[in-house]
């Protein structure tokens, strides 16, 4: 399937100051493509959540936006540390966020469940010592 756009954004660990800048750019790009309304909002929320997760929990990674004629895809791939218990991580309210993240208003344990809720298709693969990859798809119309 033809890929209309592909953009990758490196996201650094503990970079709280610029956290969200990739998501802001993703939102701008989607708007330029004429993607609006519910899909735009869902992609934006999921992208911000996953970007914050990279900043708060990962050792650094990359967020990649791809737009196809039929769907928008977000892939977050990090360099570790990996999630020991995925079912616990997916549980609402479960959080291992540090005090800095919490002081900014995050770390309520809503991130992963909220991504899953907003995406039409959500997949998470994680291996301790290797890393975590999250793939989300959002159908267009």
């Amino acid at each position: 399937m033809t890929e209309l756009i592909r953009s990758s954004y490196p996201v650094e660990t503990a970079d709280y100051a610029s956290a969200g800048s990739a998501s802001a750019d993703i939102k701008r790009k989607l708007k330029q493509l004429g993607i609006t309304g519910d899909v735009l909002r869902r992609v934006s929320v999921a992208s911000y959540e996953v970007e914050l997760n990279l900043v708060i929990h990962s050792l650094g990674g990359e967020l990649t936006l791809s737009v196809f004629p039929e769907y928008v895809q977000l892939v977050s791939a990090d360099r570790g540390p990996g999630i020991p218990d995925l079912s616990l991580a997916m549980r609402e309210g479960w959080s291992t966020a540090n005090d800095e993240a919490r002081s900014l208003g995050f770390g309520a344990g809503m991130g992963l469940p909220n991504m899953k809720r907003n995406a039409d298709d959500f997949d998470i693969q994680s291996e301790v010592g290797v890393g975590t990859t999250i793939t989300m798809k959002f159908k267009l119309a």
Binding site: E49, G107, A108, N114
Partner: peptide
């Protein structure tokens, strides 16, 4: 708690908050 705002707010609304960091504006933008 921006986590909750991101998880529960579904419409173009008003946010009342005592938090004044850049993520309040970023959350509003998303």
């Amino acid at each position: 708690l921006m986590s909750d705002v991101l998880a529960f707010v579904d419409e173009k609304t008003v946010l009342i908050t005592g938090l004044t960091n850049p993520h309040v504006v970023r959350t509003s933008e998303m």
